[in-house]
Design a protein around this nucleic acid. Structure first.
Length: 275
DNA sequence: TACCCGTTCGCG
DNA sequence: CGCGAACGGGTA
């Protein structure tokens, strides 16, 4: 019932290190520099259009997947085939689509990785352990459930003062009035709450937010802010090396102005098609 | 095994 | 005293 005061994080630490040991994230998930990079890949762009986007790790896992199950082997064009394609040069060649059929083993491994990666990736970024992130999500689910879906847990972002983006937002999202008149108190912004924070006096509800084109930009912005926190590790790998899960993290705060500057800097450098 | 849910407990 | 992190039992 009570937590052992000698080692309050013994269980989370053990669990986290289990994942850490068995899941060499930087290797399996690809280069971590994907996060500091603010350029959205085509995969990420398509991800923003999906209702339930895959994490980056899935994109990276899938992108180089061999198409062995569906693509006939030895499909290298023969000399006759080459000449045939030369003849058809004038005709627009329709590149044949291939659809990868994952084996049950593939799906098993991928799903397993996906389930854990959801929290692993975030925990690495935030330099928290896996259990802390998972618990936070659980508590947030309970919190939003108790408060009602439309009243709380609608993540919001500050006004954009870039007229370029503001115009684009209006045009693409309809009559959402959120980018102009919100006031942001200091309590609105903290290192833990600015990314997923409800604002009680705005006109958003879950639907308007979830259909907003910035809905999927939270993680990129999050990474962007972390990147610019002066005391933050440069990379996830560096974070792992110098500060394992055992350490009790101290909360770092960004001031309102700092966060606003980061936000504006981030989104004003982003092209609309990136969003 | 992850999630739900009630609960405890520490902190400001 | 309220909030939120964390715990532990139950469940599918």
């Amino acid at each position: 019932m009570s937590v052992d005061p000698a080692c309050p994080q013994s269980l989370p630490c053990a669990e986290a290190s289990d994942y850490k040991d068995s899941s060499p994230t930087p290797v399996i998930c690809g280069p971590e520099e994907n996060y500091p990079s603010l350029q959205m890949s085509s995969a990420e762009m398509s991800r923003t259009e999906t209702i339930s986007p895959l994490p980056y790790s899935m994109d990276l896992l899938i992108q180089d997947s061999p198409d062995s199950s569906t693509s006939p082997k030895g499909k290298q064009p023969t000399s006759t085939e080459k000449s045939a394609t030369k003849k058809e040069d004038k005709v627009p060649i329709k590149k044949q689509k291939t659809r990868t059929v994952f084996s049950s083993t593939h799906l098993c491994v991928l799903n397993d990785r996906f389930q854990r990666q959801k929290y692993l990736k975030l925990s690495n970024i935030l330099n928290l352990n896996y259990t802390q992130v998972k618990t936070w999500f659980q508590n947030q689910r309970m919190k939003s459930k108790n408060n009602g879906v439309t009243q709380a847990s609608v993540p919001t972002y500050p006004s954009l003062y870039s007229s370029y983006h503001q115009e684009w937002l209006v045009n693409t999202t309809g009559n959402l009035p959120m980018w102009s008149n919100q006031t942001w108190s200091n309590s609105t912004w903290s290192s833990q709450t600015w990314n997923i924070q409800s604002c009680s006096n705005h006109s958003w509800n879950a639907e308007t937010w979830c259909t907003h084109p910035f809905y999927n930009c939270g993680e990129e912005f999050l990474q962007f802010c972390i990147q610019f926190q002066p005391n933050s590790p440069v990379s996830d790998l560096e974070a792992d090396l110098e500060s394992p899960y055992v350490t009790q993290q101290t909360t770092r705060y960004l001031s309102t102005s700092e966060t606003m500057d980061l936000f504006l800097n981030y989104f004003t450098n982003m092209q609309p098609e990136d969003v």
